[in-house]
Amino acid sequence: MQGGGGNRKTTERKGEKEPFHVIHKVPSGDSPYVRAKHVQLVLKDPEAAIVLFWKAINAGDRVDSALKDMAVVMKQQDRAEEAIEAIKSFRDRCSKQAQESLDNVLIDLYKKCGRIDEQIELLKQKLRLIYQGEAFNGKPTKTARSHGKKFQVSIKQETSRILGNLGWAYMQQSNYVAAVVVYRKAQLIDPDANKACNLGLCLMKQERYDEAWSVLEDVLQGRITGSDDSKSRNRAEELMHELESLQSAEFLSTQLGQNLEEVFAEGLDQLLSQWTPSRSRRLPIFEEISQFRDQVAC
């Protein structure tokens, strides 16, 4: 009998409707931050959400999350410059634990705005923190989120990710020498097919075709993998075709240059022989002067 009652209670609990905040994945309560999240995620009104996030920050309500979320929404609304200034102005109100995630948002904002120098400087700063053992608040891993799912990230993975972003930033400045150094370091730490393709492209830009071929072949042969292997292989194939074209063009250019040198040398010899006057081709007046001089001499 007792078992039957327990089953009924379990059934009743299963039949109960889940709370609103659970269904819509918003925090519970009625604070400024909660209202901002409700407007953002349920009502789908980003501009109104930004106003409410400002109110939450000014009220001191979950400032860490409010500032970060507001910056992300601003970026989506093409207000990235405003988001950068907001983070710089109010990050001192946030906890020490929130600074790292704010830096990650800033890096994305700098990228969005094309502020590459600032992006590079911040990426270097994050690498310094890793080398000094201060990243992840001194822990070997941290919990990250992507598409609503949580997962663990190691220091090794984070270092490779930052190096990849730094390599990409150098590519935007056409600083392929620095990009190659950074991408090679990233590959030593945590090999990745997408970064390998970028490395191959940077080597191609420097006309280091044999090295580029070796890197891209590793991707095509599956010796280097990534999160999206099919996409990386397709890109590697495209780069391989481009590389073959560049090598063919270089070969033809070299051959053409050699042929032109030979043709020029032959042509120059002919021109010199034409420019050197022979006795038989002197103008008549010179022949007459020569004859007169011979007669006088006699």
Rank of each mutant, 00 (worst) to 15 (best):
D103I: 13
K150P: 10
F136T: 06
A71K: 01
N234A: 06
R282Y: 11
D210W: 08
S31I: 13
Y209W: 15
K9C: 04
K111N: 12
L123P: 03
A83I: 07
Q187I: 05
L260Q: 00
V22N: 01
E238W: 09
L102V: 15
L252W: 05
A249W: 04
L43D: 06
R184V: 02
T10E: 15
G4K: 07
N198Q: 14
K231G: 05
S146Q: 07
W213S: 09
I23Y: 13
M171Q: 11
L163M: 00
S230M: 15
W54M: 12
R35T: 04
E238A: 15
S214I: 14
T141M: 00
V219G: 13
F151W: 14
N175P: 14
S248P: 05
E82T: 10
K205L: 05
S232V: 06
W54N: 09
A144Q: 13
E288V: 13
W168K: 03
P19M: 08
K231V: 11
T11S: 13
R62S: 01
D69A: 14
F136Y: 12
L188F: 01
L122T: 00
P46T: 02
D192S: 10
V39K: 01
K25W: 05
P32Q: 00
T141G: 02
K17H: 14
R62A: 03
G164M: 02
F136L: 03
A135E: 00
V39I: 12
D190F: 09
F286C: 01
I285P: 07
V26W: 00
S160G: 09
K112E: 09
K9Q: 05
G6H: 06
H38V: 13
D108M: 09
E85I: 01
R128K: 11
